[in-house]
Design a protein around this nucleic acid. Structure first.
Lengths: 158, 158
DNA sequence: CATGATTTAATGACGCATCAACAATCTGGT
DNA sequence: ACCAGATTGTTGATGCGTCATTAAATCATG
């Protein structure tokens, strides 16, 4: 086996900072949304594309593609939200396998009330610390890393 | 109320990329560790500082500070790991409130076997897509954002 | 059309993370 | 010495996320 490519100390520190940030940012989002609007970040993630869709209805498959979630995760989350009356499931007419997810009136009121505070929080925590150039640079970095993760960091294929 | 500072489309896209990356990176870590070593990323996070500590023992409070976890989360995780024989709890001699966490022999073997693969994965997914300058820049961005999150994005106090 | 592969969704089990509540112990000021 | 307040750790409840499994419907191909 090839000898391990250890992380240099400064790399280990950056990795550690990243892990911490990742968690704390998630936590800050959850807290803000829960406190101000009584919903979780996962709720928000689904409510947002639903509220922007034609008629407030999306097929589960398409909603999943929109947010990049797996079917199982999506299904569980929809179940939780359905129980609280934020969305409703309906049959899909063109494809009997499908499920349509509809934003309820309560769901719409909730997302519309939550959106400004959410945007403000994201901006304050994530974007305000960087200037516009830096935001662009960060975006590029994130996309490059994302490509590696999606390709599982492939070594060049034969 | 002041009118909401919405995210510009390119900002919304960066935010979405970040959220996705955050999840996928976590997932990739978990999968690799689970597959190759039978442990979770949470296990690894605690095993690592324990294995580097004097005698493989740390007070729970200090372990928590090391990884930046809250008490409750730490306690639950230690319980799960204790059940699987990776660590053991011991009494703390100087402070009867305290709890010492000791790396077991099995725990040490596990972390030593897991470390190279973990380092390789972090490097391949997170660092390889960037050149050294860019890594430094990213580290700086992360620290700035982290500061905002820890300060809760404070507006200048009166 | 028949049939096997694929797509879509739901579910149960399990580990992870947070919150609220609790209990025990220590500390500092009086 | 005392006691109020802070620190440390545990626990139970609940929501989130992944995996493995299942079931139904659709598609592609002969």
């Amino acid at each position: 086996m090839p000898e391990p490519r250890w992380l240099a100390p400064h790399e280990a520190e950056i990795w550690s900072t990243y892990r911490r940030l990742s968690r704390e940012l998630q936590r800050a989002q959850d807290q803000q949304l829960q406190r101000d609007s009584g919903i979780s970040a996962a709720d928000y993630a689904l409510l947002a594309p639903l509220s922007e869709s034609e008629g407030g209805v999306l097929r589960a498959r398409d909603l999943g593609a929109e947010v990049g979630w797996e079917r199982s995760r999506l299904s569980h989350q929809i179940s939780r939200m359905e129980k609280r009356g934020l969305v409703a499931r309906e049959a899909c007419e063109d494809d009997a396998r499908g499920a349509m997810v509809r934003l309820t009136e309560k769901g719409r009121e909730t997302i519309e009330a939550a959106a400004p505070g959410h945007a403000e929080t994201v901006r304050r925590l994530f974007f305000d610390p960087l200037n516009p150039d830096e935001v662009g640079t960060l975006g590029m970095f994130l996309k490059r890393i994302m490509a590696a993760v999606e390709g599982r960091g492939e070594s060049p294929a034969p």
